[in-house]
Design a protein around this nucleic acid. Structure first.
Lengths: 167, 167
DNA sequence: TTAAACTTTCAAAAATAATTGAAACCTATT
DNA sequence: AATAGGTTTCAATTATTTTTGAAAGTTTAA
């Protein structure tokens, strides 16, 4: 397998993985492309490599920057903008987790709290509902907090975590 | 908030959360419904509560059973089938992780391995590609293995993990 | 062996999400 | 203050995913 082929395969795979986890394919592909590029890439080049429109590129780059995993760069003497991806994987994971927590988990927790605190009356049905949603709330909260902990470990949290689990 | 309202809110929220993570909304809703039901529910009742077609219900129940998080039950004297969800949350998390690992992570790892082992020639570009995809492979492998570890802890792994991290 | 009670399948339709492309919008340079 | 080089926005289109519903398939019981 040659470089170009490998690069393309990687970009496609990362894109597919992204869609399976609720991230738009192009967004994941752009991210993949930037991750394996050793220097900043222009929008023009991204469009060219991925065969996508300017609008698409622009919107997804904006989204990636909002996630905090892609940065804009300016080159002296060049008018156009260049982009680079966060390449440190620990940092990448922390940022993705934080963002998904903020956007999706936290709001869900809020609802979970609400519905788990209704007055349970006396029917077994209602009691079970309150019991189960309370457990779910506790579980999700604990899991979400665990993700926060990753940040505290900061350097190489995954490695350290695996060590702790092993022993 | 009354029970019915709370239940509906929970089902909707779980459905929305599902879609954001690449799980079809109806599948997540059926799962939510079964999780908070204290007794097995018939397909007829699922269709009625979620206002969905028979085909949709059938296909998504099949999918949930394939994931190993919903079970079929038969009631004496009744011809129709009833369904229940896995209600133990540790068990639920383990099963979901295992399934996503098998279906999505493992195949991605295979590709990652392939592309990270091309001959790097001498250009800085190619070297960076190999370096970055190798790191990614190692990272994803480690994270995936960590999920496996959950299984070994089995009982209340999340609680134990949080304890370990804290100290 | 037929019918009744249910479930599954899958092509077609509907709903949802992603993408395009051109106009509007910057902003630096002449 | 006009223009050139570049980016953003968003209504309309296109692609993808979900859902429907009716026919085919199963299973139990008479």
């Amino acid at each position: 397998m040659k470089f170009k082929e490998a690069k393309n395969k990687f970009v496609q795979t990362w894109g597919a993985l992204g869609s399976q986890w609720g991230i738009n394919k192009t967004m994941a592909q752009i991210h993949a492309l930037l991750m394996v590029s050793n220097e900043a890439v222009s929008m023009e080049d991204i469009m060219e490599e991925l065969q996508i429109s300017r609008g698409n590129a622009s919107m997804n780059l904006r989204a990636l920057m909002d996630w905090g995993i892609v940065y804009k760069e300016y080159k002296a003497g060049e008018r156009k903008e260049f982009f680079t991806a966060e390449k440190d994987l620990d940092e990448l994971a922390v940022k993705i987790s934080r963002e998904r927590s903020k956007r999706e988990i936290k709001p869900a927790l809020k609802i979970l709290k609400e519905v788990s605190t209704i007055e349970a009356k006396d029917s077994a049905e209602e009691k079970h509902f309150v019991d189960q949603t309370t457990k779910l709330y506790d579980f999700v909260l604990k899991a979400d907090n665990m993700l926060d902990k990753m940040t505290e470990f900061n350097d190489n949290w995954l490695g350290k975590l695996v060590m702790k689990i092993m022993k």
